[in-house]
Write a protein that binds this DNA or RNA. Structure first.
Lengths: 203, 203
DNA sequence: GATCATCCCTGACATTTGTCACGGTGACCT
DNA sequence: AGGTCACCGTGACAAATGTCAGGGATGATC
């Protein structure tokens, strides 16, 4: 029996190498490529032809979701298993919509990772059950495109004038969008709205 | 020659297990304990008598800095190597002041981790050179104790009234501390001050 | 004992922020 | 064609925020 070829993508070199060591302990798994940026995933996949890609969500270049979408269209035979630090509902939803076969949080026991890779390779879906439930109740983002833009720009904590400049809108409009976002997130402050939206993976 | 006994502390089970796998590849290293919380470190160290403790900074219960201090007084023979996702100047400074022998960022190549453990065990200090330089220019936190408290409480984005309640201060005092923090961080907004202070590891 | 820094508080002020009501545009669907 | 929805803007208002100038209290340092 031929072994399962795995591509590893994580921006933290130490974690990446450690995961490689972990998976290499399994006789039926073989790590054939490692990258540290989201925009290097497709290129590496074309070169090494992996069966399964293990993608982190937080990465420079392109995040794991974008990489998933790119990979699904460029190398459709390669299944995607997304691994992430943060179990945010929006991440799970967007990852699955982008074509991922599995979604694993970094809290899960190390023993289960290899098994998750095998399941994904076998065509099954692997999803953390509690996170799946959370995703269902959280629903998809209630924010409109512009509200998301404005809230994203508000993450680094500038004034309304700063936001207006960076999004090319009037100050009044920016405040309207912020007000709407505050209402939809059930918060009382711009900063709180940012925090909630971020926790849900809406940004 | 007897092998180096290593204790592993990281809240993410997957990363913890992966690091264990990575270190276990080295014939002269032996992982003798794994914990997922900062407040379990000392207990585990007393039981397993490690030579080197690998501590993550971000952990529930007690963070890696607090765990370092506790370990240094409870098990002084055990050297501490701090590993962290974020290379924040304040983290490095506080870790060293708490008695750590080394400080490694998770960006470093996996190959170097085992070598870092060996160096620390040999009594040497291991510090990322670029981060060390950054720490020198950043200096220690300019914030007073109360300013730090208030700014920490402001992280989740509540109103001044919320902060005043959570820190047991008058609203006016809270605003004064925030104003001082804004001035010292060279920012224009409370949220921006929080962001800057957080990036420098001052919270 | 004087000096200094920090702390806590007050009160007042200008600015910013969040809210609301409103009008107008374009896209999409029925 | 009409209805709905997101979008952009205006103007105006109350509330929250950031700033400043004070005063009193504490503890460390010289």
């Amino acid at each position: 029996m031929t072994s399962i070829r795995v591509l590893l993508a994580d921006d933290q070199a130490l974690v990446r190498g450690a995961l490689a060591a972990l998976l290499s302990l399994e006789p039926d798994l073989e790590v054939v490529a490692e990258v540290g940026r989201g925009d290097e995933v497709v290129e590496a996949a074309l070169r090494s032809v992996p069966d399964v890609a293990l993608l982190d969500v937080e990465m420079p270049g392109a995040d794991g979701i974008e990489a998933t979408a790119a990979l699904a269209s460029a190398v459709p035979d390669c299944r995607v298993l997304v691994v992430t630090t943060f179990g945010r509902p929006g991440y799970l939803r967007r990852a699955m919509e982008a074509g991922a076969s599995g979604f694993v949080v970094k809290d899960t026991p190390a023993r289960q990772l290899a098994e998750a890779v095998r399941r994904v390779h076998a065509g099954l879906r692997v999803v953390d059950p509690s996170l799946a439930a959370e995703t269902l109740v959280a629903g998809r983002s209630p924010l409109t495109a512009r509200e998301t833009d404005v809230l994203r720009a508000a993450r680094d904590g500038g004034t309304v004038a700063d936001l207006a400049a960076s999004v090319h809108l009037s100050e009044g409009t920016v405040r309207n969008h912020l007000s709407a976002a505050i209402g939809k997130t059930g918060s009382r402050t711009r900063a709180e709205a940012v925090r909630i939206a971020e926790q849900n993976g809406w940004l």
